[in-house]
Design a protein around this nucleic acid. Sequence first.
DNA 1: TGTTCGTCGATTTTT
DNA 2: TCGACGAACA
Length: 736
Amino acid sequence: MPDPILDNLNPEQLEAVTAPDGPLLIVAGAGSGKTRVITRRIAYLLRDRHYQPWQIFAATFTNKAAEEMKNRVVQLVGGRQLAHELPIATFHSLCARILRREAPALGLPNNFIICDERDQLSAVKHVMRELGIKDTEVKPSYAQEIINRCKLNMLEPEEVGQVIESRHEQTLAAIYEAYQKYIRASHALDFEDLIWMTVRLFQEHPEILERYQQRYRQVLVDEYQDINATQFLLVRLLAAGHHNIAVVGDEDQTIYSWRGADIAHLLEFEKYFPERRIIHLEQNYRSKANILRAASTLIANNRLRFNKTLRTEAPPGPPVVVLSAETEYGEAEAVAHLVAALHRHASFQYKDIAIFYRIAALSRVYEEKLRELNIPHRVVGGVRFYDRAEIKDMLAYLQVVQNPANTIALLRIINCPKRGIGDKSLERLLDEARRRGVPLYEVLREVATSGQLVSGTAATGIQRFVQSIETWREFAHNHSILELYEKIRRESEYDASLGDPAQLEVRSRLEHLDELANAITQFELSQPKATLADYLENVSLVNPTDDLRDTQNAVAMMTLHMAKGLEFRVVFIVGCSEGLLPYRRSQEEGRTEEERRLMYVGMTRARDFLVLCHCDSRAVYGERQFSPASLFLSELPTSGVLHVRAEQASFRELALLANSDGSSGEIATQGELEEAPTSSPRSQGLLGRRVRHALLGEGEIIGIEGSGRQTTYLLRLDDGQLVRLLARHAQLEVCG
DNA sequence: TGTTCGTCGATTTTT
DNA sequence: TCGACGAACA
Ligand SMILES: Nc1ncnc2c1ncn2[C@@H]1O[C@H](COP(=O)(O)OP(=O)(O)OP(=O)(O)O)[C@@H](O)[C@H]1O
């Protein structure tokens, strides 16, 4: 009888899935079935070892990964309820759940709110103003970055020196300290706090830790190479009693070092759990051999890695194509045409195809060209829905209603729409609040009755504002989130403040606000018992595009980071230029190897066909700049890689090539031809000869394909271009 | 207090 | 090219 959980596993995979209790370390390369193993193991624990869903703590680093894992487990084990009961989620979300219950033990309120990057930046700016630090002296975004880097490593303000050495050390420490005070007073936690405070909770309250150790009998971490020091400490605390901790990782796929990820933790696992069982998976089940070889050759240039074996039994498949164009428009156009051809002439559906890029800003051109050709596509996690100003404003209203002490949100909406409460008044109110050590809202409430401290217009504005908030708070007690939202939207007259609905810009904002209503409805339907606090937490931690199901038949577009863990039959990596991939700033900060890993991750997502794109010049800040090909392109093997100029490319031919399995030699690749030339005797002699073409100039014949009338030459011109010419038309002159 | 216009400056990746 | 911020005006 077929067993969905234990069938279709190789012996090593099976060993990993069914390993007995105790620490388990699985180190394995791309496409070797790591995710398959960890999901099957969870299913196995549930079905055959009779664990309850809530006893399993499975952490991931992205919402997408969590969603994917949960879906797979539910598919294996079944049960509608299961999806809600299984604690498979990101570290941040698992921690938020714990803190929501236990916050009081740390002196924090249960209804804390989670502030995102933007809130964080505005908080930093706020405290810098209060401290009288000019943003020319220290850039707020820099201060933010340093604060986060400290918090990732559980460093207090006085320890700032450990992450930077600069004359600003004192200043940054002061900002950090003030920032902490400010967000605490606002009843807010930032992303880093979620992890760190959970660790602190466990360290300071052994009895609470013990409860969670009792509860979570199995700890699992996917993509373990991405773990940072705080997260590692967290899982060590949880597993301290039973040591039932299983992790899977691949050091070649560490792409989050800027979030504190460190390969060292892979080694340290063995230090903390010396009795660990270690399993290597060495067979790649995903990619055609040419793709795997190209990726392996590339990553071999990294020094910071173990030497893993990764083999495949797959046929060579089509060559990896390096597609070059003159400009980014040419590049995008070529991509779009090739996508169309793959759809039309080959067996690929749109949803089999993905386009990856280093930075999200790059997606635009490619989107445009796809749209021009009417190719359905979806951008995964581009401009984040909840990042839009109008959405953030409305959510800030909900946050203030939920917890008026949240000064961060309060400041966002106090004069939006305009209520005549200007900078001057606000400053006075904030001073008063600071002097007395009470939340800003407290002061507002008093001013609303006393009318003191501010001018007439401001006082009226405050009065009406406080009045509204109080009404909404009352209303929130016995109404749904949606009802509350609609009421706020109506009574705040926010819509009108956006301007004339005849304007396109305004209309799209209004549409976003309608979409928010839809999102709230969806949420309330899926979680009927959820509170406003639950909703706001969900909003902060889960991007709605994350759970946009991949149901549409559309080309997927995303950053290389988002691509991790996924697979597609066809992958395009666009913008393979120096400065972009590897990204200049990363390179300057000494993280070239991480950029190479990023490229490696992208390449290994492909099953059948991989296209790496590049262009000679690109507009940067509106200015056209020379854009040399990526270092990584030069690190690819010569064999199994085909270089094509977009201007000369026949997309139909490329599409047919993509469909070939590379074994019959219908269209051989450059490398194969060099190694094993097969062609008619007459042409044979030309292979490797220098020739001159009337129009194209001189070059070398590096390949001969087909025979008879179909014979074609593959010619490498002296400028590096590759062209394919039908032999009977090619008027070539042999040189020398 | 609110609006508009010009200048300047800056760009990663995710929770 | 876009957006954030400051100065000058309504
Ligand atoms: N034993 C197997 N037999 C057949 N196919 C397998 C087997 N193991 C894994 N696969 C397939 O190989 C592909 C890669 O598996 P999976 O995503 O689990 O790998 P991974 O190691 O997590 O990859 P990566 O680290 O690159 O994200 C999937 O399509 C999976 O279905």
